[in-house]
C-alpha cells in the first residue's frame, strides 16, 4: 500500500489536544467523585445509646479501642457500624459486564484494522 505521511500538527492544534485530554480526565474521573456520585457505597446502621456490648465488641476489642483513643462506645459507633452495601440487581451486573466486554471488543476491533495498515506499510513496498 501507499506510504501514509502524517500531517505535521500545528502548535495550536497540539494545545487543543492537551486541553481535550485534561478536560476528559477531570470530567470523567474527578467530577463524579467531587459530586459525591462515586466512591464507596457505605451505609451506617444507627444504634441508639450504643454500648460496647450492643456493638458486638468483646473485652479485648474494647481494650484495643481504648488504646486507639476511643474512650466510649458512642465515639466508635460510627466506625463500627459502617458496612458496605453489596446489594446489586441483575441489570446492574449485566450492564457492567456489557460495558467491560464492549470496551475490549471496541479496542481490539479498531486496533486490528490499524494494525493491518501498520504491517502492510512495514513489510510491503520494501525489499526485505
Amino acid at each position: 500500500m501507499a506510504k501514509y505521511t502524517a500531517p505535521i500538527q500545528s502548535k495550536a492544534s497540539q494545545f487543543i489536544d492537551v486541553i481535550v485530554i485534561l478536560v476528559l480526565t477531570i470530567v470523567t474521573l474527578y467530577l463524579p467523585s467531587w459530586l459525591k456520585l462515586a466512591g464507596s457505597s457505605v451505609v451506617h446502621k444507627t444504634v441508639d445509646n450504643p454500648t460496647w456490648d450492643s456493638l458486638g465488641q468483646n473485652a479485648t476489642m474494647v481494650a484495643k479501642w481504648n488504646q486507639l483513643g476511643y474512650a466510649d462506645a458512642a465515639s466508635a459507633a460510627d466506625t463500627i457500624t459502617a458496612r458496605f452495601d453489596y446489594s446489586f440487581t441483575a441489570i446492574n451486573l449485566i450492564a457492567m459486564i456489557v460495558v467491560i466486554v464492549g470496551y475490549y471488543v471496541i479496542i481490539l476491533r479498531y486496533s486490528e484494522t490499524e494494525y493491518r495498515d501498520v504491517i502492510a506499510e512495514k513489510f510491503d513496498g520494501k525489499e526485505k
Partner: peptide
C-alpha cells in the same frame, strides 16, 4: 463492582 461500581463505570 461490589462497593465501588460507579468508579468502575
Amino acid at each position: 463492582f461490589l462497593g465501588y461500581g460507579t468508579q468502575l463505570v
